[in-house]
Amino acid sequence: MSISDLAARTRSAPPLPLIAALALTGGGLALLVFGATTERLTSPAKAAVALLGLGLLLAGAARLGRRWAGPGFDVVFWFGTGWLVLLALAVVCAPWLPFGEDRDVAASVAEQPFAGPTFTGGHPLGTNAFGLDLLARCVYGARSSLLISLSAVAIGTVVGGLIGMVAGYFRKTVDRVVGIATNSLLAVPPLILLIALATVLEPHLRNVAFSLALLTIPGMVRLARATTMNYAGREFVTAARAMGARRSRILLRELLPNVLLPILSLAVVMISVLIVAEASLSFLGLGVQPPEPTWGNMIAEGEGRVFEEHPHIVLVPGAFLFLTVFAFNIVGEKARLRWDSRSVQL
C-alpha cells in the first residue's frame, strides 16, 4: 500500500472507530501494567486485571490492524508470533538476564519458599518449595523443551520425508514395505511407545529427542508419500524423465521443492505436539530429571496438596506450556492455509 493510498484511507474513514480502537488499546495496556505492578491487590486479583488488560489490548490491536492493514489482519497470529519471538530471545539471552537461581538449591537457602507471584521484584512469578525462581526455571525449561521438540521434529522431518518420497516415487515393493513399517508404528499407542523407550534408554536430552522423533516419522512419511504421488505424474517430472535425468535428480530437484512446503507446515504443528509429549514424560518422571528444569517436572512439583495451597506452582509453567503450544498451532495453521491457497493457484 502506497503512502497516498494510506493517507486517502485515513481521510475518508470516520474518526470514531479509530478513537475507539485507540481507547481499547490504551486502556488494555494501562490495565496490563497496573495488574503487573500494583501492590494493593492479591495475586489472583492481579492476574485477573492483567488478563482483562491483555484482552482489551488484543481487541484494540485487532481493530487498529484491520484499519491499517486491511480485513485480513489476524491479531491472534501476530500475538502467537510475538510470544514465540519473545520466548526465543529469553532462551538465548537467559545467561545474561537478571534471573534468580533456577536449579542450585544450596544457593536459594535464604529465599522464601512458595513465594507467590508479585510481577515485580526479584521473583516476579514466585518461587517453588526450594526457593528457586519460577521465571528462571520456566525460561530454562523452555530451552530444554524447545531443544528436544525441535531436534525430534528435524529428525522426523528429514527421515520421514525422504522415506515417504522414495515410497511415493518408486511405489511397488518399496511402497508396500514402507507402508507395513509405518502402519506398525501407528498401531502402537504413542504413550505406551514412549514409556517403553524411556524404560530402556537413559533420561537424557538426546534419548528423549530420539524417542519423540519416532512419533513424527509415520505422519511425515504419509504426507511426503501422498504429495510425491500427486506430483510424480506432472508434466515437469515427465519432461525431466524424458530428458534422461537420473532418479536422484528428479527426487531432489523436481519433487523435493513441492514436497517441502506441506512437510514444513506439518512440522510446525508437530512441534507443539512434541512439547506436550515431552512435558508428559517429564511429569511422569520418565523424561528430563530434576534439578534440570522442564515444564513437565515443574508441573509435577504441584502434586497433592501443594496445588491446593500454592496453585502458582502449577499455573506458571502451565501458562508457559499453554501459550507456547497455542502459538505453534496458530503459526502452523496459518502456514497450512497459505500452502493450501498456493496449491489451488498451481
Rank of each mutant, 00 (worst) to 15 (best):
P124H: 07
L41Q: 07
N329R: 12
E333R: 12
A129R: 15
A45D: 07
L261V: 13
G35F: 02
I155V: 15
V153Q: 03
A129Q: 15
T37A: 06
R103S: 13
L125Q: 02
S272W: 00
G126Q: 03
E333P: 00
E101P: 01
I163N: 03
A8V: 08
V200P: 00
K46W: 06
K334T: 06
R253F: 08
V178G: 00
W96I: 11
L56M: 14
A209C: 11
L186V: 02
V177G: 02
G80P: 05
L41P: 05
L150Q: 06
G160A: 11
D74M: 08
T120W: 05
L41V: 09
R171I: 00
P113N: 08
V259I: 11
L89R: 06
L346H: 08
L54M: 15
L223C: 04
S144F: 12
S184E: 01
G27L: 05
N297K: 05
T238G: 06
L57M: 14
W68K: 06
L18P: 02
T118M: 08
N297W: 03
A48E: 13
V237N: 07
V153H: 03
R225M: 06
R338W: 13
P203V: 06
F236H: 15
N258H: 15
V259Q: 01
G26H: 01
R40M: 11
R40Y: 10
E254V: 03
V109Q: 14
S108G: 05
A94P: 02
G121E: 07
P124C: 07
L286W: 00
A213H: 05
R253E: 12
N258G: 10
V85W: 14
M165A: 02
I19C: 08
F283Q: 07
M220F: 10
I192R: 01
G161D: 04
R9L: 15
F34S: 02
S43L: 02
L205C: 05
G121P: 01
D5E: 15
P317A: 14
G122L: 02
P98Y: 09
R342F: 08
A106E: 10
T38A: 09
D175C: 08
I275C: 04
V200D: 03
R234N: 10
A142T: 09
H204C: 09
A94F: 11
H312M: 13
E202V: 04
N230C: 01
V237A: 10
S108E: 05
I313E: 09
S108N: 06
R246C: 10
V268H: 00
N329L: 12
A196P: 00
P257N: 10
T118Y: 04
G285L: 08
A198V: 07
K334A: 10
G296V: 11
A61T: 12
P113R: 04
I250L: 09
I19E: 08
M243F: 11
S211Y: 07
A36W: 01
